[in-house]
């Protein structure tokens, strides 16, 4: 192969004329063919469901009389959207996750960044051990992590309530006031290791000469960290932040699990996805669920756009 590399042909510059055209077209077709399995799957699993959801959101299941003689699906126009627009619970759940994301994501990223800087600062042999230790949560299946924390929080069998008493704190992690901090802690725990690894890898890519010069100028390590290292990993942070926010707005499995332990706190409309899920599978109102999920998708797209706008300011 290295041989064929060597007589790299000069005969294949792009956009050769006439006789090449068919060959190029053929090549394009072949290239497109490679993406075909994915494209077909994408249409079936992404595009058609969205179309289906749009159509469904315009219909409703109606009965008549005593409701004992069967149902009919009828066209209702935008009724479902009008109902959703005024559905306080839906917007409350949206507000809940939005506030949560605004608080949890920066904390998580800040902690991950600090850890990465710490790891970068220490270097040497200890790094490998620390890195494995910090990555433990990533190896834990999501549902298991949630269950473990629920048990740690539990006043019945977990240690944390007692720890609080030790410091004369009377906290109840599963109470209404503590629910979001409890879930937030769980998610931070779950993701800081992985995020740290990504940021750490970005840090490794910085050329050491940059620091040497700064050190020679007498800059402190902290100064180096914040003026050289942090700006360098900004792009990674911004993207991680964006994907974290999109993920958090959709939070589902964690509240659902907490719900089976403290249903009186985590209600069925606690988060948008929980509400959509319950509308679809509990109330059996797929049409309304479709309308809600379309609105939800629009909100996520808007949030992402705004986030992109704010973080992509050209740097001074």
């Amino acid at each position: 192969m290295s041989q064929s590399l060597r007589h790299k042909s000069p005969a294949a510059p792009p956009r050769t004329r006439s006789p090449r055209i068919t060959w190029r077209t053929l090549l394009a077709a072949k290239g497109a063919a490679f993406t075909m399995p994915f494209a077909i799957g994408f249409v079936i699993l992404f595009i058609l469901p969205i179309i289906y959801a749009v159509v469904q959101s315009l219909y409703a299941v109606k009965s008549s009389g005593l409701g004992l003689s069967g149902n009919q699906t009828v066209f209702v126009g935008l009724d479902n959207f009008v109902a959703a627009a005024t559905d306080l619970r839906f917007w409350e759940s949206m507000g809940r996750v939005a506030v949560f994301a605004c608080i949890q994501v920066p904390i998580k990223l800040a902690v991950s960044l600090l850890l990465a800087l710490g790891l970068d600062y220490l270097k040497g042999r200890v790094v490998a051990g620390l890195r494995i230790g910090l990555l433990v949560p990533y190896m834990i299946p999501g549902i298991v992590g949630t269950l473990v924390w629920i048990y740690l929080y539990s006043p019945d069998i977990g240690p944390l309530t007692e720890f609080g008493k030790f410091f004369s704190l009377d906290w109840n992690f599963l109470s209404e006031a503590m629910m979001w901090p409890s879930i937030g802690n769980l998610l931070t725990w779950d993701s800081i290791g992985f995020n740290m690894l990504i940021i750490y890898a970005s840090l490794q890519a910085i050329s050491p000469e940059l620091f040497e010069a700064a050190r020679l100028d007498g800059a402190s390590e902290a100064r180096i960290a914040f003026s050289i290292k942090v700006p360098f990993v900004r792009a990674a942070l911004v993207l991680t932040g964006m994907l974290s926010i999109i993920g958090l707005l959709q939070i589902f499995a964690e509240p659902l699990l907490f719900r089976s332990f403290v249903p009186e706190v985590v209600t069925k409309d606690y988060t948008p996805t929980l509400m959509i899920f319950n509308q679809a599978f509990d109330a059996n109102n797929y049409n309304y669920a479709a309308a809600l999920s379309l609105i939800f998708a629009a909100v996520i797209a808007t949030v992402s756009y705004l986030y992109y706008k704010f973080t992509n300011k050209p740097e001074a």
Binding site: L48, I51, Y52, Q56, N71, T73, Y286, N287
Partner: peptide, 17 residues
């Protein structure tokens, strides 16, 4: 099903009923 999917949009209306 894949064949049917092509018509999903138009069929969707009565899928529930």
């Amino acid at each position: 099903g894949v064949a049917a999917m092509a018509m999903a949009a138009s069929l969707a209306a009565c899928a529930g009923g």
